[in-house]
Design a protein around this nucleic acid. Structure first.
Lengths: 337, 337
DNA sequence: TTGCCCATGTTAAACGTTTAACATACCTTA
DNA sequence: TAAGGTATGTTAAACGTTTAACATGGGCAA
């Protein structure tokens, strides 16, 4: 801008007026001259300076458990696109379900003056969420949420989805159904568990504690292995419900290794999507969450909150549906394609 | 900082000196007082202001074809981690293999004053790359590269990998081997094609033009379908080599639909990794690129280039290997696990 | 005692924008 | 013709840092 002003022998202010598109502030001849000079000199605005002045960065921070997990990668893509449509750029970080990394990322993003945050919060980060609220930093939670802390959040009907998943297995005649989930105790997982239990009860099956296997994010492989050993699938239980895609992928690998056939020896249903579910020798029935809706709603809600700081908190439930493969068991009737 | 200075009745400068860790510039009592006040008042540095002054943002821009593609999502994760270790944050964007979107992202990132860029460039973006060079903006290319433009870049030995992939099929007794790849004409794909052809020739098989199917990124499904129809797999060709994971996923879905059995009716090898390859009814033999190396080297090289603008360009070839499944055809001898 | 140096703190300019407040000249209108 | 309005440009302060240059006072050597 300085160069343009000097080149034309005018003040920096008038250049700024035309560059920032203020109408009616400068004559049209001057505007033309300045635009011409700007093009010639290849002017590009310095967004950092702009941000410093305006206090806005047009940047959103995205914190997920792991960007390389297809579930989050897919959401990230939607968020990126939606944010761009509104002139925002996204910076991201992976928390690995760690409280410390999450705090670290939040601090980093705050220091970088992001305008808002989209977070899939790890278990145990209630304090971080409250801190954001105290600082009046706009944010929305996705996928997970804290029932005791009212916040903007986007999620599916986890109870209903858990119910539908178990229901599918029960309707196929399965009676002893295991649930493999994360140990974290996050509410969305608990809801899925509740849905699963209710479905069992509604079908006259008493849920057994030993059917519920918990694995930790950090030691997925070994704990899934131990869990499966305890379950004795095919003998002890006749079906398994996985509450996330990563659990299912790991579980299916091990079931393959154990030589179990699905759905003959064992019925299987999972949450989330994966190319592997579609291409498995029997397509895996799974709960599909509407990731486009989740991402778009998250950005939309966040931007509304950024623009109107007094915005009351909203909880948005987006769609999910059961995609029928043949892994439940009733091959003939369930196959969809 | 202003608050701290006022609170202590000192100048802003001395606060700045201790906050930015300048040693020997301020007495230790003063330093202690200021640190205490900073903690009490919850001071957090404004990185935007810092950046404006220093001209450095400690931010890297990452441009990939699609962050929701597991290949790029995985690289993104490595890059994120490596960048964080060095105090850098990553902003990302997906080009969808579009020249315009790529230009758009580059412009956005430059305006945001990123310190450097990591780019998987779409076909036809030579001019963009040259523009970056003219502006002396540090960047490194990953996965793809332009043979006519010397740039920092990280890639695998695409010729060797293509050769190894085809070799595996040939050694299993396949003679008519199709290659399905992207139409883009990017050098890394061409190299894979050259490797494939050379392997055929070395095994005394004359490559047929009609064995080479090209699909465009934007119309993947229909063009793969048409390509497969022309190939008549199982009749016209006895094996298919896919040059990327997305092509393979799409292709395998359609082969399933066509009722073809692998490896009995058709041998298959793919590039890249996927959970679906491991969990397919027969594990898919594939070329695994060392993503950790690619990501870490990319960040390392970029930071070297940022620190030393006179750094001469480097081309780094990272490892790749053939992960044997049973999809080549020689089930008995090839199975690995 | 004088003169210097050193340690420590302050002042002010700068980074690239934005924008309120001011200045100027011209045009109306009565 | 005078008063007021309008159109257009300039000045300068501000955003939150950093840092060169300057100021001050005390300690030390000769």
């Amino acid at each position: 801008m300085k160069d343009i002003a000097a080149h034309l022998g005018v003040s920096i202010a008038v250049v700024s007026y035309v560059m920032s598109g203020k109408k009616g502030r400068v004559s049209s001849e001057m505007e033309a001259k300045i635009n011409k000079a700007a093009k010639e000199l290849g002017y590009q605005p310095n967004l950092i300076a702009r941000s410093l002045k305006s206090g806005k960065t047009s940047t959103l921070g995205l914190i997920v458990a792991d960007i390389s997990n297809p579930f989050f990668a897919h959401i990230a893509r939607i968020i990126e696109d939606t944010a761009k449509q509104h002139g925002y750029t996204v910076i991201f970080g992976s928390s690995d379900e760690s409280v410390e990394k999450s705090q670290d990322l939040i601090d980093t993003f705050l220091n970088r003056q992001v305008d808002g945050l989209i977070i899939a919060p790890p278990a145990g980060t209630e304090a971080q969420v409250k801190m954001l609220q105290k600082k009046k930093m706009p944010f929305v939670l996705i996928d997970r949420y804290f029932p005791d802390i009212p916040t903007d959040n986007i999620r599916i009907d986890n109870f209903g989805a858990g119910y539908a998943a178990a229901d599918c297995l029960l309707k196929s005649g399965r009676r002893s159904i295991a649930l493999i989930s994360y140990r974290s105790g996050m509410e969305h997982i608990k809801e899925r568990e509740r849905g699963y239990r209710q479905a069992l009860i509604d079908h006259g099956v008493a849920p057994q504690d030993e059917w519920q296997i918990k694995a930790s994010y950090q030691r997925l492989e070994s704990e899934v292995r131990e869990g499966l050993a305890r379950l004795q699938p095919g003998v002890g239980v006749d079906a398994i419900l996985f509450s996330t895609n990563s659990l299912a992928i790991e579980g299916l690998k091990q079931l393959n290794r154990m030589g179990l056939r699905i759905p003959d020896d064992l019925g299987v249903v999972s949450f989330d999507e994966s190319d592997a579910f579609d291409l498995f020798y029997v397509p895996i029935t799974h709960i599909r969450q509407s990731l486009p809706d989740m991402g778009m709603e998250a950005v939309g809600l966040l931007l509304r909150h950024i623009k109107d700081k007094k915005h009351k908190t909203e909880e948005i439930v987006v769609g999910s549906d059961l995609v029928s493969g043949a892994s439940c068991g009733a091959v003939a009737t369930k196959m969809v394609g």
